[in-house]
Amino acid sequence: MNADQLTDQLTDQLTHVVAGVRDPEIDIGLGDLGVLRSVSLTGDRIQVHLAPTRLGCPALGEITRRVRSAVADAAPGRGIEIVWERGAWQPASVTAAGRDALRDAGYRVAGAPPRCPYCGCDDVARAGRFGGAVCKVPYDCRGCGSPFDVIGTAGCTVTLHSVRGGSR
């Protein structure tokens, strides 16, 4: 195995490690959440590109700490640089597995007409314009009565589909 192949192998390994780092708020990996953009290795320096779900995300520091720790464990002795690509995250960045994990946790992802993650009902109403975190907008299901959040709403007016009943 030559040097390039070793680099590729380590890069893949590190990508897998960072993708598995859990988001501090929702139990989902950064890869499935679409926060991980890329991992590159140049010499002894590892560069990890991440994208916040929203510019004001308060978890950037904790995510940085977790990623740095995971990378340091997987590749000790190398320099680590975390680069935040502001504005790069989109709802489409969430993987299919990520959407399933979010649904199981009681979330839906913006970009499609929201459905209740619990009963699948599409008769939902936005319960407010701002949720418990800046990346979430609260909804209520009229079918089963469950509250749930839609995440990934940067520019709610742009990515949130209108729903029956509007907002209150």
């Binding site: 929203r54 510019l55 004001g56 690509e85 502001r86 504005g87 790069a88 314009r129 701002f130 940067a154 520019g155 709610c156 007016t157 742009v158």
Partner: peptide, 18 residues
């Protein structure tokens, strides 16, 4: 830097509406 400026604009539009 376009994505960041675009995100700032989109989020400020939400604030403006509020």
């Amino acid at each position: 830097w376009l994505p960041a400026i675009t995100a700032v604009r989109d989020e400020q539009l939400v604030h403006l509406d509020h």
